[in-house]
Amino acid sequence: MKHLLSAADLSREEAVGILDDAERWAATQGREIKKMPTLRGKTVVNLFFEDSTRTRISFETAAKRLSADVINFSPKGSSVSKGESLKDTVLTLGAMRIDGIVVRHSACGAPYQIAHSGWTDASVVNAGDGTHQHPTQALLDAMTMRRHLVEGDVRGQDLRGRRVTIVGDVLHSRVARSGVNLFRTLGAEVSLVAPATLLPVGVDGWDCDVFLNLDEALDVAPPDALMMLRVQRERMSSAGGGFFPSPEEYAREYGLDTRRLARLASHTIVLHPGPMNRGLEIASPAADGPRSVVTEQVANGVAVRMAVLYLTMTGSKE
């Protein structure tokens, strides 16, 4: 696998293989010496055109634990602020013989463009492009779900028969798109829950169930994993941006509050890709409670990204 651009590109076998590898990398992270020499001599650039804390630090940690050299790039303080194009930026990196590019960009398809335009030979990993894809997030969510929802030895197992319910701002969410692709590939049933204003056009063509009412979704299709999406205020014009009447109403209709938390089955886990808007899509008792696996998601993110960097950056070129 030379690039990882979309969760939709992965077959069931590839996805299960990445999750199994991630478990092996996770086992190395409990040791005194967490650093492996696997990618020694390789250089990875974190090319982040959008703000990020956990994804960038997670990729940086993963690359450093594999002994790669990591260069962080942000548009502020770079030539992008002088108007340099994506092409020229990537050509510059290509000339510096960079081995891997982890890219986040507000434009859907930017990672695909970088990987397939001939600007660089580097392996490209998509760390989020616009509202399109965020494949490593879907993988770390799947790893977290598999650990909690599959009994016994998780290796080789998928999520067959489990129900994943994704709630909130589906319209702006690459996490939701990647998640629907990957969880379906792994055999899970997926429900999307959102107000009609926050559902993308054509969602009825997606391979999942769609609900407009959260309480109905919890009754009709009880989830094994409940994933609360962040309300992406930066992609909306004002407080609710006209997508919903008020934050209070959104929290009442679609937030995970203590009342809804109490209705979940005893084994159901609560996920959130972060950063959390506490009191909006998720109440603090849900975010900090025993069902919450939010910090595990972060830990698993490093292991998943180690697996992805290993798979994309080792192996002879043809």
Partner: peptide, 8 residues
């Protein structure tokens, strides 16, 4: 870096 990617 010389051989095809090896499974862990």
């Amino acid at each position: 870096a010389r051989l095809p990617t090896r499974p862990l």
